[in-house]
Simulated scan of single mutants.
Amino acid sequence: MSANLPLRPDLDGEAPYGAPEIDVPVRLNVNENPHPPSAAVIESIATAVAQAAQGLNRYPERDFPRLRAALADYLKAESDAHPAPEQIWAANGSNEVMLHVLQAFGGPGRTCLTFTPTYSMYPEYARDTLTDYVTRPRREDFTLDADAAVTAINELRPAVVILASPNNPTGTALPLEDIRRILEAARGHGPMLGAGIGSPARASDCVVVIDEAYAEFRRPGVPSALELVGSANPHLAVTRTMSKAFGAAGLRLGYLAADSALVDALRIVRLPYHLSAVTQAAALAALSHREELMAQVASLRNERDAFVDWLRAQGLTAHDSDANFVLFGPFPDRDTVWRRLLDAGVLIRVVGPEGFLRASIGTPAEMERLRRALVAAIGG
């Protein structure tokens, strides 16, 4: 750095996280919902925000009980889960929710474990909380090897295990049986807690985070880890977001469901009034239109499955996806294919296993343009 600043040594040479922001006609690189809010949703949000603005001289509700109740009600409808409002936590995107988890349970001398390829932000959460970040590989088909996961937990005694389901960038969902096995392995295999006066050291439970950012897009019959949340698994947290299925990436609202004791631990590390009154009002308004927004999810699922079939018909490998994106390839030179697509006005993502590309699911018109551009890119 040019300035003589006391930057932390582990941040020296690091660059800010972010996918390319390029103004092209078709942007399918960051897994956004391609459908903007309807006029009815916009009107509800605008009205709610205007009402909230009347009280902007006051701090917002610090622990946002109304929003937590509305999110709990939504999860009951979407996944037939039954969390109580006190089992819900929210923050500015699921990124901040994850950061709260690592702030509360990670830190120096503690480990965060995950399995790659997976979401590229996980090491940054660990780095920013001074938590050691350790990975183990997934199988060649990108599914999780539950036996290997159990072995790693036994060996490492991590404070936190993060598992994305569906996984980003592969779209792979976790069977509930694998999650149950990992939860059982995590009992008593977290960090050793220091001995006090007259008391010996004791083993903690490792916190298991199931990142379900794309869960609403899962195929029929694929369960949610929300079924396992509660007092039987007090070390489980399931994270969600309004960025994807709700088409509200600009709102920045992520949340989790967990046992109330785990949620209370996150309340310790959150900044005061971290969710603005405007964010709370807009989120509540969006949640009131959940039926309309969920109808979009069904159409995106259909478009995704059709794209997978089309890719396979072109002789490419396309993995079944339970998310709103598809990983496909392999290409001898994926960067050249990516550049040719960009030159044709289509932006997708170079991410994940070598040779593969990832495309978000767009509107039917956007997907048709992607197909035409991909045929030309491969043939060229």
Rank of each mutant, 00 (worst) to 15 (best):
A3I: 06
L11I: 00
G13E: 09
E14I: 01
G18H: 03
I45E: 12
V49H: 08
A53M: 09
A53S: 13
R58C: 03
R66D: 07
L67S: 00
R68V: 05
E78F: 00
H82M: 10
E86W: 00
W89R: 01
N92I: 11
H100W: 05
G106R: 09
L113G: 04
L113P: 01
D132T: 15
Y133Q: 08
V134I: 12
A146L: 02
A152C: 08
I153C: 02
L156P: 00
P166S: 13
P169E: 03
E177A: 14
R187P: 04
P191M: 07
G194M: 14
A195F: 06
I197N: 14
G198E: 06
A203C: 11
P223V: 09
S224P: 02
L226R: 03
L228P: 01
H235V: 08
F246P: 00
G250I: 11
G250V: 09
A257H: 03
A258V: 09
V269Q: 06
S276A: 04
V278M: 04
A282K: 02
A286V: 15
H289M: 12
L300V: 04
A306G: 15
V308C: 08
L311G: 12
L316I: 12
F328W: 05
T336V: 10
L342D: 06
D343A: 09
V351M: 09
E354I: 03
L357Y: 11
I361K: 00
G362F: 02
A373E: 12
A377G: 05
G379L: 11
